[in-house]
Amino acid sequence: MKLHKIKPSNFKKTIICRNVSSTLVNKSIKRTHLPKAGDVAIFRIKEVGKHTRVQTVNGNNRYILPGDLIMATFGNRYATEQLEGYLPTEYCTNYQILGQGGVIGTMASIHSKFELVGPTTVSLVGYVVDETGQVINTKYLNHEAPLELISPSKTQAPKVILSLGTGMDSGKTTSAAFLTRGLKLAKKKVAYIKLTGTAYTKDRAMVRDYGAKMSLDFSDFGFPSTYMCSTRELLILYKYLFDKAKSIAPDVIVVEIADGLLQRETSALLNDSVFAQNVFGVLFSATDSMSAISGANMLKELNYNVIGVTGLFTTSPLMVDEVRNASDYKVLLGDELMSKEIIDTLEQSKKTEVFENKMAANNGIC
């Protein structure tokens, strides 16, 4: 087994590989090793398309050009506004960059707005290995896997508020950041977790800047993405992130789940009884008035406490009026989320939910 040592100055290390210290590369197995999500490799840029930059370990976005080498990982991606891609099932001469944080795979579809530019293509130089020749995988790197899933009985505090939405770019992260700002003004300590998505630290950085005392995401435990993960694996990941967030003793943990309610992992989590029992309420972001109401209705049918609806649609006074006139859901504008009075809204939402549940129970008896 012949290993090649590559100088760090000769490649750009993507942020998902920030905990990888090895620079040993095995080129001989690139045609025979079937990669798993998180497997680290060196890739050469062949043709620049949609992705013109990669996010590197210090958070900076560096431009990439044909011939450049990058250290990245194989993974899957689900992004309705961008790319869909998967782990390769066989060796390919060309792979595609699926995510700017360093996710590589084979593209299955691309949004029509990027069809002309196309994806950025790369070739596989070789896999990054340790001194024994084992391919390095970023998932849970330097961490011992937990033996049990998250248990609601062990997590009675702090409050967990979910930031959910109708889909990608509906305003989930902005809403989470605004809520964090309001809670901070109300003298509450907030931790933020982005539980699902594709590696890229822009969202966690935004919520941190708006006042989160701790800001985490799935990539902290080496996940290049969470697409195609099992529900069990997501719950274990959540336990890791939750326990880390609890270390600062926050009053509230804001948990953002990527994409929309119909997406594979989002739907699985919301329908999981273990995950659901730990949730105080949901802040729901939507792109338009109709989806705000229909999405909130879906959450209510799953017995979630809908604190309020917000998101992109709130930039239109007409759509705000539509939601207010056609539903009983509280519309939360950006200024309201960023006000210290938001703490009163949270408390009132829970009281209202308890009252409605009692009324429903009484009606059922009658």
Rank of each mutant, 00 (worst) to 15 (best):
G182D: 11
I136C: 07
S225P: 07
K172G: 03
L237K: 04
H143A: 14
M338W: 09
I236A: 10
P250S: 03
E84L: 15
I193K: 03
V252L: 02
T266V: 13
V320M: 04
V282G: 02
I6W: 01
N61Y: 08
L3P: 06
L262P: 11
D344V: 06
I193Y: 03
E301I: 11
V129R: 04
F221S: 02
H143P: 04
M214I: 10
G75Y: 07
Y127T: 06
K194E: 03
I236V: 07
L183C: 03
V160E: 06
R31T: 13
K202A: 15
N137A: 09
N137H: 07
S273P: 02
K189G: 06
K194L: 05
S230V: 06
S273T: 11
M319Q: 13
G171Y: 12
K188T: 07
T166E: 09
T73Y: 02
V40K: 09
S123P: 04
N94T: 05
N305V: 00
R18V: 02
P250C: 06
I70Y: 00
K7T: 06
V279A: 02
V135M: 11
V252S: 06
L346F: 08
T73V: 07
K358L: 12
T73Q: 12
V128I: 08
L147M: 15
E301P: 09
K27Q: 14
P35H: 05
V279S: 01
D39K: 01
H33D: 09
R324A: 11
I42G: 04
V306C: 04
A286N: 05
A157D: 10
D272C: 08
R324I: 03
D335E: 15
I248G: 02
D321V: 07
I42A: 10
V279D: 00
A361Q: 09
D321L: 11
L333S: 06
D344R: 15
S349Q: 00
T120H: 03
L147H: 13
Y63P: 05
R44D: 01
S247C: 02
E233R: 11
T352I: 12
I193D: 01
E301F: 13
I64F: 01
T180I: 00
I64K: 00
V354N: 08
T56K: 12
Y240S: 01
I136Q: 06
S327T: 10
Y329Q: 01
D169E: 14
K300T: 14
F114T: 08
T310V: 12
F11E: 01
L241D: 00
S22Q: 04
F74C: 04
R181W: 14
A360D: 14
Y127M: 11
L162K: 02
S170E: 11
G281N: 03
D243G: 08
D169R: 10
V274L: 13
S327I: 09
N297Q: 15
P35S: 13
G49C: 08
T155D: 10
Y127P: 02
K300S: 11
F74R: 00
G38V: 03
I248V: 04
K202G: 10
V129Y: 07
N94R: 01
T201M: 12
C366W: 08
L162W: 03
E336K: 11
V160T: 10
T201V: 08
G182K: 02
V190N: 00
K188E: 11
Y127G: 09
K330T: 08
V255Y: 00
N58W: 06
A191F: 01
L83R: 07
T315Y: 14
L262T: 11
G167N: 10
